[in-house]
Each structure stands twice: as structure tokens, then as C-alpha cells.
């Protein structure tokens, strides 16, 4: 293993993490809801949630999209936007993300951040599982198949 010290951004990563943690804390202490993005999005798509429960979810997602865009404009762009990525990887992967997060009741935020922060055994098992399959998948795609960017 070689570590890419040149692209290592510890302070940005920590500050971004703290902002995410503040967001999860605000949503939990403010209104008693877990900041799990797949859960929030999924209950909007499923058409089952009561109408009073839909407004805050839309506002959270709109805020998320706007928050990222505002910082993008303020900083003039911290990274180069990716283009030319194989569409079958993007769409096929997104289908699996949709199925997997509903089947497993959560994603990086719900299990990885909130689950671990409240010492949930389910959160820990889920996080170890999706980290594991993500590492293996990237290895297969980049180093065995030679797709998807730098090797």
C-alpha cells in the first residue's frame, strides 16, 4: 500500500466531518430524527409517508443540495468535476445503492455516522459490511478489470 500524501486533506476532512456531525446533532436534538440520507430520500420516493412528514424531508434535501452548491461557489471549486465516467457503472451502481440501502435500512450517514455515534451494533455490522464490499469492488474494477480511472 502506498499513501497519497500529496492529496491527503486532513483539515478539510475533519472540518467537513464536524459540520456533518453538527447537522446530525441539530436534526436529532431539534426534532428527534436520524440524519440518514437514504432513509429520508427513500420515504419520499415510497409514496407512503403522511403528508405532514414529507415537508421537512424535502427541505432537508433541498438544504443539502444548496449547502454543497453554496460552498462550491464560495470556494471557487475545491475539486475538478468528474466527467467521462462509464455510464453503466454509474447507473448499475446507483441501482444497487437504492436496493441495498432500503434492504439494509441505511447508508453511510445512518449506519456509519449516526449508528456508530450511538454505539449501535446494527450500525457497526452494516458499516463493516459496506466498507468491506466497497473496498473489494474498487479493487476488482480498477485493478482486475482496469475500468474507472487511475490504476
Amino acid at each position: 500500500m502506498t499513501i497519497a500524501w500529496a492529496s491527503f486533506t486532513p483539515w478539510l476532512a475533519l472540518s467537513g466531518g464536524v459540520l456533518i456531525g453538527l447537522s446530525a446533532t441539530l436534526l436529532w436534538l431539534g426534532m428527534g430524527r436520524i440524519a440518514g440520507i437514504s432513509g429520508i430520500a427513500g420515504s419520499l420516493f415510497s409514496l407512503k409517508a403522511a403528508s405532514g412528514d414529507r415537508a421537512w424531508r424535502w427541505l432537508f434535501l433541498i438544504g443539502l443540495i444548496a449547502g454543497a452548491f453554496i460552498v462550491h461557489l464560495l470556494t471557487g471549486g475545491l475539486f475538478e468535476v468528474r466527467s467521462g465516467y462509464p455510464i453503466w457503472l454509474l447507473v448499475g451502481g446507483a441501482l444497487l445503492v437504492g436496493i441495498g440501502t432500503r434492504m439494509g435500512s441505511g447508508c453511510t450517514s445512518g449506519h456509519g455516522v449516526c449508528g456508530l455515534a450511538r454505539l449501535s451494533m446494527r450500525g457497526l455490522v452494516a458499516t463493516l459490511t459496506f466498507m468491506g464490499t466497497a473496498f473489494v469492488t474498487v479493487f476488482v474494477i480498477r485493478h482486475l478489470l482496469g475500468f474507472g480511472g487511475s490504476a
Binding site: 444497487l96 441495498g100 440501502t101 432500503r102 434492504m103 439494509g104 441505511g106 455490522v125 459496506f130 466497497a134
Partner: peptide, 9 residues
């Protein structure tokens, strides 16, 4: 579910 999600990620 977590395994499928990780593959998609």
C-alpha cells in the same frame, strides 16, 4: 443490504 450498497458505492 449493506453488502449490495457497498458494491454500488
Amino acid at each position: 443490504g449493506a453488502a449490495l450498497f457497498g458494491i454500488g458505492w
